[in-house]
Computed example of a mutant assay.
Amino acid sequence: MTTYILLLRGINVSGQKKIKMVDLKLALEKFGLKNVQTYIQSGNVVFESDELSKPILIASIESLILKTFEFEVPVLLFEAKEIKLILENSPYLAAETVAANHSYFVLFKTPAEDSLKQKLQSETFLNEEFSISSACIYLKCNVGYGKAKCNNNFFERKLKIQATTRNYKTMSKLVALAGFFN
């Protein structure tokens, strides 16, 4: 049994694409996923499955969401150990950065092209720093994410990929729900 972390992009934002987590949990359990746990209302789910193929799981969950909630949602799926490593490898884990809620993770649905990553890496922005890895962008927003130029849509446009952003607190909680930190 593998523990996965499922992230839905763009649900429950400004009244768009509303999914109650209790309904999502129920749908995923009926589908056959085990030990389903949700965290806050932004589409964060930890579950276990015998299915080892992430593409099969993603396609099945996307289909389930379309059938159940009648709209499409980008689905990002990671093994829990991948999220744990992403979290641990962040260059923005200084206590003051984490405490001020300035540390973010822009997680990629698919890998970005190296040429686009290199081009983006050369850009700089006032009050914002970022570092690009193979699976995500580590982002530090010194004045908070709400005022950031480097937001999820910005990175999606620059890298021509789908992504979703989570803060340090959410990433830590998902890793804890997956059983890594108790």
Rank of each mutant, 00 (worst) to 15 (best):
E88P: 02
K140T: 00
N142M: 13
S63N: 14
K84M: 12
L24W: 04
V143R: 14
E29Y: 03
I86P: 01
T165D: 01
T124S: 14
N182D: 15
A59W: 01
K81P: 00
S122H: 09
N153R: 08
N44M: 07
K34R: 15
Y168F: 15
L33H: 03
F125E: 07
N127F: 15
R157S: 11
E113H: 11
L33W: 08
M1E: 12
Q41W: 11
I132K: 06
I132Q: 06
N101A: 13
S60I: 07
Y92G: 06
F78S: 03
F180W: 08
R166H: 09
F47K: 10
E70K: 15
A94T: 09
I58F: 00
L52S: 13
L177Q: 08
E72S: 15
A27L: 04
F180N: 04
I5T: 12
S134Y: 05
E96K: 13
I11R: 00
T124P: 02
N142T: 07
S131D: 15
E62I: 03
N153Q: 10
N127W: 14
K140V: 04
K147Q: 13
P74T: 11
S122K: 13
T170L: 12
F47M: 11
A100I: 00
K54L: 14
A163Y: 08
L33P: 01
N12I: 04
Q121R: 10
K117V: 11
A27W: 05
Y4F: 09
N167M: 12
A59Q: 15
A112M: 10
L126E: 15
Q162L: 14
N44C: 08
K67E: 14
E48M: 04
G43K: 00
S131C: 13
L159E: 01
L64Y: 06
E113R: 12
Y168K: 02
I86Y: 03
N151T: 11
G43Q: 06
K160Y: 02
L87D: 04
E123K: 08
F78D: 04
E96V: 04
T3F: 06
V46Y: 04
E82R: 05
L28W: 01
E129D: 15
T110V: 13
